[in-house]
C-alpha cells in the first residue's frame, strides 16, 4: 500500500553497517558513558550497529547521501530520538534535498508513530520551510481517521489553520466527526477554536451554536463534552449563565421529564448560584432549589464526587446570608 517503500526496506535482508564495504571509512562509536539502563525497551543488534555509526557521523559532522539514509534507519529504530531528527534536518539543508520527498517520507513515518512528538515537529519544520500548508488538512484528517482524539494531530491542524488561514469548511468537518462520535471532546474543542478565530461569538452565532449544542445534548444526555461546550457558549452571553431563556427552558423541560444527568443537575446548580449572587428573582427559592439539587447529586446521581456537591451545598447555604467570605476557607479538608 502507501507505506510500501519502508516495507520493502524491512523485507530486504538487513546488512549491518559494520559489514558494509562503503562504510569502512567511518569509525563507529559505541555507547560507553556508564551502566545504568533506565527504561527497558527490547534490544536488537541492529540497533547498536546503526547507532554506533550514527554517533560516528555525528562526530565527523558528515553530511552525505549515505548519512541521510543512516538517519532514516536510526529514526526507524527509534523515532523518539530527537537528535537523529535534528541531524537529519541539518543534512537536508546542507544537501538541498527535495523537501516534497521528505514531506512524503514523514507522512509515512507519522502514520506509524502518530503519538510521537519528534515526527510531528519534523513535519512542521518542513511545512514552514516550504511555506505551504495546503496538504496539512487532508493529512491530519487521515491521521484522525484512525484516532480522532490524537492530540498531536489536532495541534498540528490548528497550527496549520492559523498559519495559512485554512478555516473554510472546518465546521462541516467537525460536524461530521461529531456525527461519528458525539462525545469527541477534541472535536467540540475544535468547534470553539474555529468560531473563536473566524466569526467570533456574535449574538447570531451564539444563538445558532446553542441550538446546535442543545440538539446534540438531546441525542446523548450524559455527554460531558457537549455540556461543557454549552457552558463555554454561555460565557459569551452578556446576561450570564442563568438568563438565556432557550437554555433555561431546555434544562427545566429535561428535568421535568425525569432526566437526572449529573451534567444537567450541575448546570441547574450553577444557575441557582448565579441567581443568588446577582440577587435577581427569588433568592431564597433559588438557594433551596440549589441545595436540594446538590443533595440529590451527592446521595444519588454523582456519589463519587459527593465531596464536591457537599461543598457546593455549603457554598449556597452561606451565600446571601452575609457570610459568603467565610465559605472558601472552611471546607478545605
Amino acid at each position: 500500500m502507501s507505506d510500501s517503500s519502508d516495507e520493502e526496506i524491512s523485507q530486504q535482508k538487513w546488512v549491518f553497517y559494520k559489514d558494509r564495504p562503503d562504510w569502512k571509512d567511518v569509525e563507529p562509536i559505541p555507547q560507553d558513558d556508564g551502566e545504568e539502563p533506565v527504561v527497558t525497551i527490547a534490544y536488537s543488534k541492529e540497533f547498536t550497529d546503526v547507532y554506533d555509526y550514527f554517533r560516528g557521523i555525528l562526530k565527523t559532522q558528515e553530511k552525505s547521501e549515505r548519512a541521510l539514509q543512516l538517519t532514516k534507519d536510526a529514526a526507524n529504530l527509534n523515532p523518539a530520538n530527537y537528535t537523529v531528527w535534528q541531524y537529519r534536518r541539518d543534512i537536508i539543508k546542507a544537501l538541498k534535498k527535495d523537501l516534497r520527498e521528505e514531506l512524503e517520507y514523514i507522512r509515512q513515518t507519522i502514520r506509524k508513530h502518530s503519538k510521537n512528538y519528534q515526527v510531528w515537529h519534523h513535519r512542521k519544520v518542513l511545512v514552514e520551510w516550504l511555506n505551504d500548508g495546503s496538504e496539512e488538512l487532508e493529512f491530519t484528517k487521515s491521521i484522525l481517521e484512525t484516532d480522532d482524539k490524537n492530540y498531536h494531530a489536532w495541534q498540528h491542524r490548528q497550527w496549520a489553520m492559523k498559519t495559512f488561514k485554512l478555516y473554510e469548511g472546518e465546521l462541516d468537518y467537525v460536524d461530521s466527526l461529531l456525527q461519528t462520535d458525539i462525545r469527541n471532546n477534541s472535536a467540540w474543542n475544535q468547534r470553539y477554536f474555529v468560531v473563536n478565530n473566524t466569526t467570533g461569538f456574535t449574538d447570531v452565532v451564539l444563538s445558532n451554536e446553542i441550538d446546535y449544542t442543545l440538539n446534540k445534548i438531546n441525542i446523548a444526555k450524559e455527554n460531558e463534552s457537549a455540556w461543557n461546550y454549552l457552558r463555554g457558549l454561555l460565557l459569551h452571553d452578556k446576561e450570564g449563565l442563568s438568563k438565556n431563556q432557550k437554555v433555561v427552558k431546555f434544562c427545566e423541560d429535561l428535568y421535568n421529564s425525569g432526566n437526572r444527568s449529573a451534567f444537567l443537575l450541575a448546570l441547574l446548580v450553577d444557575m441557582c448560584d448565579e441567581e443568588i449572587t446577582q440577587g435577581s428573582g427569588d433568592v431564597l427559592l433559588a438557594r433551596q432549589k440549589g441545595i436540594d439539587l446538590c443533595k440529590e447529586l451527592a446521595s444519588n446521581y454523582d456519589t463519587i464526587r459527593c465531596k464536591y456537591w457537599e461543598y457546593m451545598a455549603n457554598t449556597l447555604e452561606k451565600k446571601g446570608t452575609g457570610t459568603d467570605e467565610a465559605c472558601t476557607s472552611s471546607t478545605a479538608n
Binding site: 558513558d33 545504568e36 539502563p37 533506565v38 525497551i41 534490544y43 527509534n78 523518539a80
Partner: peptide, 25 residues
Amino acid sequence: KLFHSEDNYEFAITDYLRMSGMYWG
C-alpha cells in the same frame, strides 16, 4: 535493578531520554 543491570544494550538504546529517566527512578 534498572540502574544496576549489567546489560549495556538496554542502556544504550534509552540514551535519548536518560536524564529524565534518571529523575523518575
